[in-house]
Structure formats: C-alpha cells, structure tokens
Computed example of a mutant assay.
Amino acid sequence: MKHPIRVATGVVCTVAAVAGIVTAANAQRRGGYNFASGKDIYEHVCQGCHMADAKGAQGAGAYPGLASNRKLQTPLYPVLIVLRGQKAMPSFSALSDEQVVEVVNYIRTNFGNSYPNAVTLDQVKGLRARAVQQQAQRPG
C-alpha cells in the first residue's frame, strides 16, 4: 500500500501543475500576463509547479527546484528556459521582455540564490529572437 502522505503530495503537485498550465494557456489566449514585479510573476505563474519555496516537487512529473540552483548562475540560461520552455515546462513567451527580466532577476536573487549581474532588457530582446527562431526549427 502506498504511503498516504506520498499519495497526497502527488495529488497536490498534480493539481498545482495543471493549474499552472491552465494559467499559462489562458494568458497566451488573452495576449499576456498582467503582473509587473518578479515576485508577482513568480507567485502567479511559476510557483504552481516550482512551489512557493522554489524547491520544486515530484509527483505526476518532475518540477525542478529553483532554490539554491547553480544553473541560475549563468544569467541567460533561465531567460532561454522561460522563452523556449524545456521538457514538460511550456514556453512562457507571452511574458513581455520586461516581465522576463523581472522574474529571472527575482529568482536569481531569492530562494537562496544571490547571483550578481542582473539580466538586462537588451539581453532578453536579443535572446528572444534567437529563442523563437530555434524553437520554430525544432523537429516534431
């Protein structure tokens, strides 16, 4: 018999993930998100999968932790992931360049992360064009 806490955790993670995907789909249909600060964007768009403490979750899928994540040390890595998506994470290209800057800089300076060299608007603008082009060239 499965442990009840593990089952409950799996159910919670599944519901949170579905809510996050539905939020993303609705935002793309409406033409964007109405959140300005990195904290607001994280709380309304990202934490459904990555959790409030940014430690990620295991359940119906694997949702990587952003807390104390050394991959975030490279400033443009999270920008690319937000714009293109990765594995089960959809693209959040409906976020404006300004919103991408805000949320990426937020996660890079919170949750046990303290990476210097903030991402700039020019960097996001330059990477968006390449990320969208690369995404269009993916097979499948």
Results as ranks from 00 to 15, higher is better:
Cys46Asp: 02
Cys46Phe: 03
Gln47Ser: 11
Gln47Glu: 12
Gln47His: 07
Gln47Ile: 03
Gln47Asn: 10
Gly48Gln: 01
Cys49Ile: 00
His50Thr: 00
His50Ser: 01
Met51Gln: 08
Met51Val: 02
Met51Glu: 03
Ala52Ser: 12
Asp53Ser: 09
Asp53Thr: 07
Ala54Glu: 01
Ala54Pro: 02
Lys55Ser: 04
Lys55Pro: 03
Lys55Trp: 02
Ala57His: 00
Ala57Phe: 00
Gln58Thr: 03
Gln58Lys: 04
Gln58Phe: 02
Gln58Glu: 06
Gly59Asn: 01
Gly59Pro: 01
Gly59Phe: 00
Ala60Thr: 00
Ala60Lys: 00
Tyr63Cys: 00
Tyr63His: 00
Pro64Val: 02
Pro64Thr: 03
Pro64Lys: 04
Pro64Arg: 03
Gly65Lys: 02
Gly65Ile: 01
Leu66Thr: 02
Leu66Phe: 03
Ala67Trp: 03
Ser68Asp: 11
Ser68Met: 10
Asn69Pro: 09
Arg70Asp: 15
Arg70Phe: 14
Arg70Tyr: 14
Lys71Ala: 15
Lys71Val: 14
Leu72Glu: 11
Gln73Met: 15
Gln73Gly: 15
Thr74Glu: 15
Thr74Ala: 15
Leu76Arg: 10
Tyr77Ile: 12
Tyr77Ala: 13
Tyr77His: 14
Pro78Ser: 07
Pro78Gly: 06
Val79Tyr: 11
Val79Ser: 12
Leu80Asp: 15
Leu80Gly: 15
Ile81Phe: 10
Ile81Gly: 10
Ile81Lys: 13
Val82Tyr: 09
Val82Asp: 11
Val82Lys: 09
Leu83Met: 13
Arg84Thr: 14
Arg84Ala: 13
Arg84Gly: 12
Gly85Tyr: 05
Gly85Pro: 08
Gln86Ile: 08
Gln86Ala: 13
Gln86Cys: 10
Ala88Tyr: 01
Ala88His: 02
Ala88Val: 01
Ala88Thr: 02
Met89Leu: 06
Pro90Tyr: 01
Pro90Val: 01
Ser91Tyr: 08
Ser91Lys: 09
Ser91Trp: 08
Phe92Asn: 07
Ser93Met: 12
Ala94Cys: 12
Leu95Trp: 06
Leu95Met: 09
Leu95Val: 05
Ser96Trp: 07
Ser96Gln: 09
Ser96Arg: 07
Asp97Met: 10
Asp97Trp: 09
Glu98Pro: 08
Glu98His: 08
Gln99Gly: 06
Gln99Thr: 06
Val100Glu: 10
Val101Pro: 11
Val101Gln: 09
Val101Glu: 11
Val103Glu: 04
Val103Met: 04
Val103Pro: 06
Val103His: 03
Val103Phe: 04
Asn105His: 07
Tyr106Gly: 06
Tyr106Ile: 05
Ile107Cys: 05
Arg108Thr: 04
Arg108Val: 04
Asn110Phe: 04
Asn110Gly: 05
Phe111Gly: 03
Phe111Ser: 03
Gly112Val: 04
Gly112Asp: 07
Gly112Gln: 06
Gly112Pro: 05
Asn113Arg: 06
Asn113Asp: 07
Asn113Val: 05
Asn113Gln: 07
Ser114Asp: 14
Ser114Gln: 12
Ser114Leu: 08
Tyr115Ala: 08
Tyr115Asp: 10
Pro116Asn: 10
Pro116Asp: 10
Pro116His: 09
Asn117Ile: 13
Ala118Asp: 14
Ala118Ser: 14
Val119Gly: 09
Val119Thr: 08
Val119Pro: 11
Val119Glu: 09
Thr120Cys: 10
Thr120Ile: 09
Leu121Asp: 13
Leu121Gln: 13
